[in-house]
């Protein structure tokens, strides 16, 4: 029995166990938790291949799991007609004065980094800003920007495929677009409070 077989054996046992849990579970919200467990074992099955390709396949696998979780939990809230908790914003002085400068620093640093990780850093800045300051939602605007950035990113991919000699343009395009996309997507999380949609 080589390493791959041993790993496969253990993982499949884990898959079976997690499915037994799913079989026995009756409560809707607990099912979501178990589903997360099951998905993780699926990722381990990919990891077992242990090449660069496996590394590249894990990211899509992870993203599929996260996005389905996001959608299902929202569907659950809708299905159960759960009210959205309302709370008063905390009144701390530093939360009114600090956000601009912190956000500015984080966004600038994110732009220097560029790309996916840059987007994440800049996005955290904006999340912070919106959480502290923003009581008005700007979903439409952020969504539009995010959508266009996503489309540009896909365009860059097609440039790589069809016109490889223009790769520099594609690199710049995709780097910039993903920066904007990730930033706006994360910023949207900051605006997810029952404020006014402007």
């Amino acid at each position: 029995m080589d390493f791959y077989q041993a790993g496969l054996f253990c993982t499949l046992v884990c898959v079976a166990i997690s499915f037994v849990a799913l079989l026995r579970e009756r409560d809707d919200i607990h099912k979501i938790l178990i589903v997360d467990l099951v998905e993780t074992t699926g990722l381990v099955l990919i990891c077992l291949v242990a090449t660069d390709l496996a590394e590249a396949l894990i990211l899509p696998g992870l993203v599929v799991g996260i996005s389905e979780l996001l959608m299902l939990t929202e569907l659950y809230i809708r299905k159960e007609n759960l009210p959205i908790p309302s709370f008063k914003p905390i009144k701390i002085e530093v939360m009114r004065t600090a956000p601009p400068i912190i956000t500015f620093v984080l966004v600038v640093y994110g732009i220097i980094l560029s790309g996916f990780s840059g987007g994440a850093v800049a996005g955290i800045g904006l999340v912070f800003y919106f959480l502290c300051k923003g009581y008005e939602e700007r979903f439409e605007l952020l969504e539009t920007i995010s959508g266009y950035a996503w489309a540009l990113w896909i365009v860059a991919f097609f440039i790589f495929m069809i016109l490889p000699q223009a790769w520099l343009i594609a690199v710049m395009l995709s780097g910039g677009a993903i920066l904007i996309k990730v930033t706006t997507k994360m910023a949207l999380i900051g605006t997810m409070r029952e404020g006014r949609n402007v």
Binding site: D52, L59, P60, V63, S114, G115, S117, F157, F160
Partner: peptide, 21 residues
């Protein structure tokens, strides 16, 4: 953080990336 695109196989397995996003 690494580069603009951390995904190592953007060029060869790009269609995966498109579907994933």
């Amino acid at each position: 953080p690494g580069g603009i695109i951390d995904e190592i196989l953007y060029n060869t397995r790009g269609l995966d990336t498109v579907v994933e996003t």
